[in-house]
Amino acid sequence: MAFIITEEHLAAIAGKPTPLMADLAAWINKICPDYEIDTPNEYAHFLAQACHETDHFRTLEEYASGNAYEGRKDLGNTHAGDGPRFKGRGIFQTTGRANYLELGLKKGQDDLFINSPELLEQPEYAVWSACEYWTSRHLNDPANQADRDILKKKYKKQVHDVSPVEFISITINGGLNGIDERKKFYALAKSVLI
């Protein structure tokens, strides 16, 4: 029997309901199982990251202008205006021309998100893009480790001993930005789902 995520689960993790939660829960239930994100522990990690990245499930678009990403070749931002055009969107805040292009390729339409980046603000694509990211980085593996397990993660050219939630946070964020809040959301998600 499939594990179902409800709007109430999302509200309990975030601290209060938001208008996005009903649509997000519906798409999570429709899309996540196709990516084998389907156990309470996997959902606890997945939703904790999503809750942080979306400001408590309030937004599917980064608040910042995206100007900080202008000229970032590591993100594929090689054209003038790419920073703001390809700023963070979706529940994991997909950022950069290269990542938008990669998602279009996965949908079989190279320029889908290049021509219409705002599509990633729609709940369906917001969840789908996060599932693609999660699966391509094999994040179910650390999500299924015990919280006390010590994992190895290379970060800033050094190998660090990290917990599963730290491993996943570094993978999604590229660093430890918001780590305390991510850990808090993970603890809440566990208490709600497990």
Rank of each mutant, 00 (worst) to 15 (best):
A2D: 14
L10C: 10
I13G: 03
L20T: 01
M21G: 07
A26W: 07
N29W: 04
N29F: 06
I31R: 01
I31N: 01
E36I: 03
E36S: 13
D38R: 13
Y43R: 07
Y43T: 07
A44S: 15
A48K: 02
A48G: 06
E53F: 00
D55Y: 05
T59L: 06
T59R: 15
L60Y: 02
L60F: 01
L60H: 02
G66Q: 01
N67Q: 14
A68L: 08
E70N: 09
K73Q: 10
D74A: 10
L75R: 06
G76E: 10
H79W: 11
F86N: 01
G88Y: 03
N99G: 08
L101D: 11
E102H: 15
K106F: 11
G108A: 13
G108Y: 11
D111G: 09
F113S: 03
S116T: 15
L119N: 09
E121L: 03
P123D: 09
E124M: 08
V127K: 04
W128I: 04
T135D: 12
T135L: 05
N140H: 01
D141E: 12
A143I: 06
D149V: 03
D161P: 03
D161H: 12
P164Y: 05
I168H: 00
I170K: 05
I172N: 02
L176D: 06
L176W: 11
N177V: 14
I179K: 04
D180L: 09
K183S: 10
K190T: 09
V192F: 05
